[in-house]
Design a protein around this nucleic acid. Structure first.
Lengths: 229, 229
DNA sequence: GGATTTTCTTGATTTCGGTCAAGGTTTTTA
DNA sequence: TAAAAACCTTGACCGAAATCAAGAAAATCC
């Protein structure tokens, strides 16, 4: 993880959704507290138990958040895409981080120090609301994951995941491109890779999807959503 | 759920942790947006899909937050105790509520309307931080639950739960009083009641605990935490 | 572009925890 | 305090998904 100080951190900042509602000149006081970092694919960004200096924001690349057991078992919590923030809750609570983070591709991200964030919130109520909305969203996503993991069986989880990936358009048929490996998706859904594979196979046999590598062709979105056994 | 307008809503407000850092005179502008409600035991407060007028705060009694499937299966997410807030994330996102809430005892609670809350946050940075910390805490708890539910087996989950209930004191032995029925705890840990019962039995056989009704006597906290098979 | 590693699939087997059923407790209610 | 209801425990059984194993496909690397 290499610190880096480019001329245009403020450019990157401005493009992040969390700061998009803020007029550029109000972002300036933030700058002394922002550092840019580069991480190579597979590099660990932080680990469970670490304390974080500030919130992390992915500028480019891809990262994953995951939990581990003492025995080494891993559970994927989220894939982080450019523009997304992570570690907000940790920073505001001043507690050891409950998850670990790893770059899955070569990535660039910003760390915005806690103190400048808090100062900004004090100064700018719009930003405070934005921050609150961002964490609230995280909470809702986690609830939804909890629902999937605890109330659904393996097939329903896969169906649920695919359904959430469908584009807004009401097209009866469409294509989904999985954005990570199937093993990672399996972990995200709390399934063994084998079980995930079998679920896809099952859906394909039922004639609702066609699988070829990471591309999944959904033949009938309606039937997918209501697919049973 | 009966609306109610007592003389001293501000008394109740002041005692809630979320508002404890706020000088009493600053709470005044909030009052027009606060309503007090009474609910009988078993009364549903709101259901998944509802939109909430404001954050809910339990003043007295007990409530539970839970998720349901179409088939009627329930999963307990949290028990709410007096002083705790719920529904914050829903309010700030303006989305349908992802969970349902029910009073488990006769209860009194306050609903603080969204608009006065936002106004208060704009006016008072300390409160904004408090709000953020509260939601962040919720997020951490949910992460911890996720960890229990996905990375641990049934026995480990029960051990984990009991360990978290231990008092701070380093006493090797102590007593835990379960604060809900065992079926509810089972649901909280995502276990069938039978499995929960068997896990307790197993621990008792192993000589680490003694169970009598809702009272659990932990004989050796150290052995409990590291209990295997 | 062939070799090597990683990822994915498929089948056979096992196991953990859920379900069903029945009996025992405790709590509630009248 | 007796009856009813709710709650808890225990045993027998079953099933969904994990694990194990091995081969196929895809991606990565010299």
């Amino acid at each position: 993880m290499t610190p880096f100080t480019p001329a245009s951190i403020s450019d990157s900042l401005r493009r992040l959704p969390l700061f998009s509602g803020i007029p550029p000149h109000e972002l300036e006081p933030l700058l002394p507290g922002v550092r840019e970092f580069k991480a190579r694919a597979h590099e660990i960004l932080f680990q469970k138990g670490d304390s974080l200096r500030g919130i992390h924001m992915l500028v480019s690349g891809r990262a994953r958040l995951f939990m581990t057991t003492a025995q080494g078992t891993e559970k994927l919590l989220a894939m982080v895409k450019p523009g997304q923030a992570f570690g907000e809750a940790v920073v505001f609570l001043d507690r050891p981080c409950p998850v670990s983070a790893q770059a899955t591709e070569d990535s660039t991200f910003l760390i915005v120090a806690k103190d400048v964030l808090l100062a900004m919130m004090d100064r700018n109520p719009v930003f405070a609301r934005q921050m609150l909305a961002s964490i609230s969203m995280r909470l809702h996503e986690l609830m939804s994951d909890m629902e999937t993991c605890t109330l659904m069986n393996s097939l329903q989880r896969v169906v649920s995941y695919l359904s959430h990936q469908l584009p807004e358009s009401g097209d009866p048929a469409c294509e989904i491109r999985l954005d990570t490996s199937k093993q990672m998706l399996a972990s995200r859904l709390n399934l063994a890779p084998e079980t995930f594979s079998r679920a896809l196979h099952h859906l394909a046999e039922g004639g609702v999807i066609e699988v070829s590598g990471r591309t999944i062709r959904v033949l009938d979105t309606q039937r997918l959503k209501t697919f049973q056994a």
